[in-house]
Each structure stands twice: as structure tokens, then as C-alpha cells.
């Protein structure tokens, strides 16, 4: 986020601010602006000048399906992540300190564990003869193994798991700041648990839900490893499309165009979030 802030025009700062920001600006130029500019350039010049790459991406049903998959999965993943992360963050806030510390450590450690390893672990768990199917069959919920890998279900499960910490952390940030006596006050005012949740807790946690949700959504849009391992070839997502275009087909124009669309969507979402937060801060 700080990168985005720096990239935005510097409001109300003098020349000395710019001088101080020089190293960062150079770094951004070298590793961000120039590569993106080259990508953009290649997307409108290869194989020949024009917008035909973008036209193809927008026009063809095959590519449309990739975009649809990507946004659909990212949306579902975000939703499920919020639904799981909220109770987890709440439980972490109210449970006794030592327990909360242990669970918090597990969450952080899982973020540091290799992504590939964790995704492979899910492949093993989710496959037809995997643990999850065996348990479901043995307790009699199903009698045929469910198809949980090589489709969007597998992708969703795997991505929710990977994204959870990114949702839990910002939620913890806002929920920990809520004074428990505010909820006690709500209860004495006559609010049931449900009313206290929907009328007090959720509104107060909204900034955390928004920032965590946006982060998860944007990360999900660009995810590559999990969809390619758990999603199979039939359900391609945007990151896979880009990799395929560039690596297998050496089609830099098409890959660049897809990447550029992804970048624009991402930046657009961040801009919305920045506005949202600045508007909120303004009322404080």
C-alpha cells in the first residue's frame, strides 16, 4: 500500500520531500514503472501495433471464461475467507491469552511455510482416495468419493486456506481495538448476541473486513500456484493464462495485455480502498 501511496502524486509536499523520496522513486522506476511500461508497450505492439490483443481478450469466449473464473473464484474465496476469519479473529480476541498466542503463532508459521508444500498437502487431502473423501465416506455422508481436485472447488478450498491469515490479521487489528465494555453495554441495552454482532461488532469491524477482503481479493486474482495445481487444465485462471501465453506460446503481446488488465483492475480496487479510508479518517 505504501508503494501505491508513493506512486500517487505527492500532495502538498515541498522539493525536500521529493529529494528524500528519490531512492524509492528510482527503485520504483527500475522495478515497477519500467517493466510495466515495457509490458504495456509489448501488449500494443506485438505481433503488430494496435489493440487487437485487448480485443481478442475481451471478445473471445475462451478468454472471457478465464476472466469469469478468475473473478468468480476470487470473489468466492474472499467471501468464504471473511466468513471463517471473522469468528476466528473474534475467538482469538476473547480466548485466554496463552491459547490465543499459540493459535496466533500457528497462523503466522503457516504463512511462512512453503506455498507449494502446503498446496501439495491439500492435493493429497482432497484427492479421490484422500483423507477428506475417506472420512466423509466412513461416516456415511457420501458413498462415492467427491471430485475435489482438478476443479474450482479444489482451487477455492486451497486458496481460502492460503488467504486466511491475510484476512485474520487485519480483522484482529480492528477487533482488538473494540472495548469489550461496548459489547457489555449493548447487552444491557437489550441486544441479543445476534443484534450485538450485526448492529455493533460488524459495523465497528468494517474497516478491517474491507482492507482484508480487498487484499485477499486482489491476491486471489493474481494467484498462480494453487489454481494450476488444484484446478486442472480445464479451469484456467488469469495468472495461468499469462504464464501460458508468455512461457509456452511466447506470445508477449497477449500475455502483456492480460497482465495489464489485471494490473489496472488491482490498482482500481486499491484506489477505491484509499478513498474509502480517507473518507472515514476525515470524519474522525
Amino acid at each position: 500500500m505504501s508503494i501505491i501511496r508513493l506512486a500517487l502524486p505527492n500532495r502538498g509536499r515541498g522539493g525536500s520531500g521529493l529529494a528524500l523520496a528519490m531512492p524509492a522513486v528510482l527503485l520504483l522506476l527500475a522495478f515497477f514503472v519500467i517493466p510495466v511500461a515495457m509490458l504495456l508497450l509489448r501488449s500494443i505492439t506485438e505481433p503488430e501495433p494496435g489493440l487487437q490483443n485487448y480485443a481478442a481478450l475481451v471478445g473471445s469466449p475462451t478468454y472471457a471464461k478465464v476472466f469469469l473464473n478468475t473473478f468468480f473464484v476470487a470473489g468466492i474465496v474472499t467471501l468464504i475467507t471473511v466468513l471463517i476469519a471473522f469468528p476466528v479473529a473474534w475467538a482469538l480476541t476473547i480466548m485466554p491469552r496463552p491459547w490465543a498466542a499459540v493459535i496466533f503463532a500457528i497462523i503466522i508459521l503457516s504463512m511462512w511455510t512453503n506455498l507449494l508444500a502446503r498446496t501439495y498437502a491439500w492435493m493429497v487431502l482432497l484427492q479421490q482416495t484422500g483423507l477428506i473423501n475417506r472420512i466423509l465416506i466412513s461416516i456415511g455422508i457420501i458413498d462415492q468419493p467427491l471430485q475435489l481436485t482438478n476443479n474450482l472447488i479444489g482451487v477455492t478450498i486451497g486458496m481460502v486456506y492460503i488467504m486466511l491469515p491475510f484476512m485474520i490479521l487485519p480483522l484482529l487489528g480492528v477487533i482488538r481495538k473494540i472495548d469489550p465494555s461496548i459489547l457489555q453495554a449493548a447487552a444491557l441495552c437489550g441486544a441479543t448476541r445476534w443484534q450485538a454482532l450485526t448492529r455493533v461488532l460488524l459495523p465497528l469491524a468494517t474497516p478491517g473486513i474491507a482492507s482484508g477482503g480487498l487484499m485477499v481479493f486482489v491476491m486471489s486474482l493474481g494467484y498462480f500456484v494453487t489454481p494450476s495445481l488444484l484446478g486442472g487444465t480445464a479451469n484456467m485462471m488469469l495468472a495461468e493464462l499469462i504464464a501460458q501465453q508468455v512461457q509456452s506460446l511466447v506470445n508477449w503481446g497477449m500475455g502483456g495485455a492480460a497482465a495489464f488488465i489485471l494490473l489496472v483492475v488491482t490498482l482500481g480496487l486499491y484506489a477505491v480502498q484509499l478513498r474509502f479510508f480517507e473518507a472515514r479518517e476525515g470524519t474522525r
Partner: peptide
């Protein structure tokens, strides 16, 4: 009787107005 059904009023030491 749970808190929310006791119909008791309370003012706390800390400020507990709903900030939103």
C-alpha cells in the same frame, strides 16, 4: 436471566457509546 433480558440500565467507567 441473561444480561440482555434483565432490563437493567448501566453507565460504565469507560466511555461505551457506540462510536459508529
Amino acid at each position: 436471566t441473561p444480561s440482555h433480558k434483565r432490563n437493567i440500565g448501566m453507565v460504565f467507567q469507560r466511555y461505551t457509546l457506540f462510536p459508529h
